[in-house]
Design a protein around this nucleic acid. Structure first.
Lengths: 194, 194
DNA sequence: TGACAAAACGACCGGTCGTGCTATTTTGGC
DNA sequence: GCCAAAATAGCACGACCGGTCGTTTTGTCA
């Protein structure tokens, strides 16, 4: 059964995720989050044991949303190259669709040098995603769409690079052709993999 | 003439740059920086008008260091493909050589959604670097090393992507093969450009 | 050596941080 | 419609934030 508390918790996490994508997981303050959600600081604290706990739950929430919006839909569609292409397009849309960009990317560069459970959770999530990408590429190889010489993990690496450049060009440099450049690069990567 | 004040200012900025690469430009606190440099907070404030001023000067310092260590040395070496390759290797070394990774990358994902003069300065520095890359590629085209069909700015985009993926794999995922993967990707990019 | 400016200091400002503890309100099952 | 449980608010705390102040130390040059 879903109680009222569950709902507010969900609402808080939604807002927190968006906020963290702008000011960072560390920069996010309880007071600001309380203001944003129209609650008191102590009201928030009934839902989260500590700020670190909140950060962990933000990452978990982002993980769920990403799986739901990007990864899972492609599992019910085509296999092989089509799925890899679908993953890429959904990934771009995921970035476009939220204020502050992809929370994983933002957090990754923020926490890369700050050891602790939050960094660990983030690295685990990122590792999972990279694995998922590589698996999709492996299937494309098995289906004969991609060359059997192809290294799926190298493909995932380069695909991630294209996404990161897209993120930077789009968010910081305000380049209107960011998505175009990303697609050109990705097409080149796919073509070279056949 | 270089006064004592100039020297300490230099020392402070050095330390501040390293610190900011770890905790971010916003996360960097005056108190912590004072502790790290063995000075008092007010002693610091003799050198910087405000925290924002400090952030701007950190970016400026990073820009100088980057130009000195990465960009300029390649101008005195080979032109064309050789220079582009040298830029890439020096770029990787620049990332490896400092705690916290490349300060520009860290700052870029931190500030991309926080308008203001600091973000502007950062975007300008990044734009400058992308321009420099594209110019080096254009020279390689003119020299006949790269195809005349090649779009230098697309090359710069993809090169940046490879670097960003390297940064992520190296810093967050602790992947030992990060540099190898970066070189494989870059070689593929260069080969496809000939 | 004495004068004067540059540099650094410690104390302190109002404000916000994360986080407790306790009281009050709201909710949902009987 | 009662009552326990769940949810939220109120309030206070010590620490630290960016920043200012008047003062003291240090370095430079006549």
């Amino acid at each position: 059964m879903v109680t009222k508390g569950d709902e507010t918790r969900e609402r808080i996490l939604d807002r927190a995720m968006a906020l963290a994508a702008v000011v960072g997981l560390e920069g996010l303050s309880i007071g600001e989050l309380a203001r944003e959600t129209g609650m008191s600081k102590s009201g928030l604290f009934a839902h989260f044991a500590s700020k670190e706990d909140l950060q962990l739950k933000i990452i978990e929430t982002a993980r769920e949303r990403f799986a739901r919006d990007v990864f899972e839909p492609t599992l019910r569609a085509t296999r092989g190259e089509g799925r890899v292409r679908a993953l890429f397009e959904r990934w771009l849309a995921w970035e476009r669709g939220r204020v502050g960009g992809c929370p994983f990317v933002e957090a990754s560069y923020e926490l890369d040098d700050r050891p602790g459970p939050v960094r660990d959770a983030l690295a685990a999530a990122q590792g999972e995603w990279v694995d998922g990408l590589a698996r999709a590429v492996q299937i494309a190889i098995d289906e004969g769409h991609f060359s059997s010489d192809l290294d799926p993990r190298q493909f995932a690496y380069e695909m991630y690079g294209i996404f990161l450049a897209y993120h930077l060009y789009h968010r910081l440099l305000d380049a209107e052709d960011a998505a175009d450049r990303a697609r050109v690069a990705f097409d080149r990567l796919v073509s070279a993999s056949r």
